[in-house]
Nucleic acid binder design. Structure first.
Lengths: 198, 198
DNA sequence: CGATCGGTTGATATGAATCAACGTGCGTGG
DNA sequence: CCACGCACGTTGATTCATATCAACCGATCG
């Protein structure tokens, strides 16, 4: 299944007998409020399940939208469950996926509840960098990075205008720069000092 | 296992072969930053597992503190897993617990990222009310409520001072009142209008 | 060539934090 | 039994971080 950038690929309350995985491109899982506000819950990269608990439930509690052009595959939920019983490795994979999702949610929750704008954005970038690096060859700290500032804003609970200002500050301090779909990090230690949540 | 109010009952990175459940009293799961800030992730009521994914992992990714006097029981993780294989009902219970935790995290995330102080507090109360009602007989919308304003502040990412101001507003508008360990709701529809996340 | 989108920047407004003072209830020790 | 200290909540004054409003710019695209 393919979708173009910006296209919605899953909707809250939608029922499906499949569990979906992103195969190519970027997407994001989000929760939409009736007045238009939305919270981006996770950016989905190739290999990511929309949400690990979809293995256990038939209806989505979230929506998913394509960020770039994406390709998505569905796996039959009943088959996954059958394989869980047969193969402990599948079981472990599902469990690990749950652990990661929970842990990521905990960290994002803490960032949103306790951190300043700079800290939240730094934290988001630090969270994404290794995930991007696991799927691309990174040279000289230059990461493929298709997010618009609006996406970052919706992920960390700020306005796009303020996201722009924070990036200006980071740029002026020679910490990082964003352009042409790439994120370039100049001062990783400083970024970690700001955004590492410890 | 018992603990007094304020006592820490689990610590991040602690390894345990048990999965813990609150049997009596209130506790809360939280994530602590080195500079003292903390994010309360969930309030734990009798019957709640500290965190559902502890069924899958041996070390905690969070801390837990007693809010009132509490009693806590541990269940052997390996035994739970064995029973999962044997009894589909146990499996379903674990799965449901994961679903609930994930869904709650999603909602809290959305509240923290997108909502105002009033909305966040209203949402927290609306989240807690049915959970309290499931464990107590509620008459005339009066709920046992042992939280201090500091706890509410740490859960929704505000200062205690501001929490106090929001409660003043709610009180002045005859929406609710808190006293002597009880929460009394006068205008539930209005509370839902403010905090329902739709 | 105009329209649209994404980003930047400045001016101003506003929600929440901070700082500080005060009150009240309660437990503890004299 | 009283006096004190302490935890908790309230309230006012002020500051600060972020939102809002608005203008503008460059790139892209029909």
């Amino acid at each position: 299944m393919a979708a173009r950038a910006g296209e919605q690929v899953a909707t809250r309350n939608q029922v499906s007998s499949d569990v979906f995985v992103v195969c190519r491109g970027w997407a994001f899982r989000y929760f939409q409020l009736s007045d238009g506000r939305r919270q981006i819950l996770k950016f989905l990269l190739p290999g990511d399940v929309f949400s690990s608990v979809t293995v256990f439930e038939t209806a989505f509690h979230f929506s998913v939208k394509a960020l770039t052009e994406v390709q998505v595959s569905g796996f039959s939920r009943s088959e996954i469950r059958a394989r869980c019983v047969a193969d402990p490795n599948v079981q472990i994979a599902v469990a690990n996926s749950c652990i990661t999702d929970t842990h990521d949610a905990t960290e994002l929750l803490t960032a949103l509840g306790q951190c300043s704008a700079e800290e939240r954005i730094a934290h988001l970038l630090l969270h994404l960098m290794p995930r991007i690096a696991a799927r691309n060859v990174i040279r000289e700290q230059r990461y493929p990075f298709p997010l618009r500032q609006q996406h970052i804003a919706d992920a960390v609970g700020l306005t796009p205008v303020h996201v722009s200002r924070v990036f200006s500050v980071f740029r002026d301090r020679y910490i990082l720069a964003m352009s042409e779909g790439y994120l370039k990090v100049f001062d990783l230690p400083e970024l970690e000092r700001i955004g590492s949540l410890r």
